[in-house]
Amino acid sequence: MKLVVQVKLLPTPVQAAALEATLHACNEAASWVSEVAFEKDVKNNFALRRLTYDQAKARWGLGAQAAQRCPGRFPGGGSPSGRCRAG
């Protein structure tokens, strides 16, 4: 049996600001990863992660999961569908 639950975030103003800052950092990092992939002609997701993971974490202060997900945020970056999702 599959159960689907819909939730709505109700962050405090401080939490909302932190979420927005994180979202902007992830989007900037994903744009940078896309540039690196284009410049170095890297099409393999794992190779791209190997090239960009450490720098994305350090430069934007991202956590491990956010830094790992950046290569999949743009077409050709390892996303199976090749589509970006609004973040």
Rank of each mutant, 00 (worst) to 15 (best):
M1I: 13
M1K: 08
K2H: 15
K2G: 10
K2L: 15
L3K: 15
V4L: 15
V5R: 14
Q6T: 14
V7F: 11
V7R: 13
K8Y: 12
L9D: 10
L9Q: 12
L9M: 13
P11F: 10
T12L: 10
T12C: 09
P13F: 04
V14T: 14
V14L: 12
Q15H: 07
A17S: 09
A18W: 08
A18N: 09
A18K: 10
L19R: 08
E20H: 05
A21Y: 02
T22Y: 04
L23S: 02
L23K: 01
L23C: 00
H24F: 05
H24K: 06
A25T: 02
A25P: 02
C26Q: 06
C26A: 10
C26W: 00
C26P: 00
N27I: 03
N27R: 13
N27V: 03
N27P: 00
E28N: 04
A29D: 06
A29W: 05
S31H: 12
S31C: 09
W32A: 08
V33H: 00
V33K: 00
S34N: 07
E35N: 12
E35C: 10
V36F: 04
V36P: 01
V36E: 02
A37L: 07
F38P: 00
E39C: 11
K40G: 04
K40P: 02
V42K: 07
V42H: 03
V42N: 04
N45D: 10
A47Q: 13
L48C: 03
L48Q: 07
L48G: 06
R50P: 01
T52N: 05
Y53L: 08
Y53R: 01
D54R: 05
Q55A: 09
A56M: 06
A56W: 00
A56P: 04
A56G: 08
A56Y: 01
K57P: 13
K57F: 08
K57S: 12
R59V: 05
R59M: 05
R59K: 11
W60D: 01
W60C: 01
G61A: 03
L62K: 00
G63V: 12
G63L: 13
G63H: 10
A64K: 08
A64S: 15
A64F: 11
A64E: 14
Q65Y: 10
Q65P: 06
A66H: 07
A66V: 05
C70R: 02
C70P: 02
C70N: 06
C70E: 04
C70F: 02
P71R: 07
P71N: 06
G72L: 13
R73W: 01
R73H: 06
R73P: 02
F74E: 04
F74A: 05
P75D: 09
P75A: 15
P75C: 11
G76H: 08
G76C: 05
G76K: 11
G76D: 09
G77Y: 03
G77V: 04
G77K: 01
S79V: 03
P80V: 15
P80T: 14
S81N: 13
S81V: 07
G82T: 12
G82D: 14
G82L: 09
R83G: 11
R83V: 14
R83S: 14
C84D: 08
C84P: 01
R85Y: 10
A86D: 12
A86V: 13
A86W: 11
G87Q: 08
